[in-house]
């Protein structure tokens, strides 16, 4: 039961971080906030794996971390031309 309160605090901190995605002045601010939200939801997945007693969710968390990393790399490589300034 304590585990659910910890998950609730992580979800609320993800919502607080989403403020920086809305009001970032530049593109790298938004990418940093997106990376932080991705890692926070990875922690939520690992904690849900212990709450539901289903260990398959750890595999989902591992695959999810790999793809968040690939997203950041692709954004930093291909968004170079089209930023305004």
């Amino acid at each position: 039961m304590l585990l659910l309160y910890l998950i609730l605090i992580i979800v609320l901190s993800a919502i607080l971080t989403f403020y920086r995605v809305i009001k970032g002045p530049s593109i790298p601010d938004r990418i940093v906030a997106m990376n932080s939200i991705g890692v926070m939801f990875l922690l939520v997945l690992v904690l849900f794996s212990y709450y539901f007693e289903r260990k398959f969710i750890i595999d989902v968390a591992l695959v999810f971390g790999v793809f968040i990393f690939i997203d950041v790399l692709i954004m930093a490589k291909y968004l170079k031309k089209s930023e305004k300034g």
Binding site: V21, G24, I31, M34, F41, V60, I68, M75, L79
Partner: peptide, 20 residues
Amino acid sequence: LSSIIALPIFGSILVVIFVI
């Protein structure tokens, strides 16, 4: 570009909802 950056956040929330 801001709209594209918000797309992985949408996906990650949907992953957690499917797990719940």
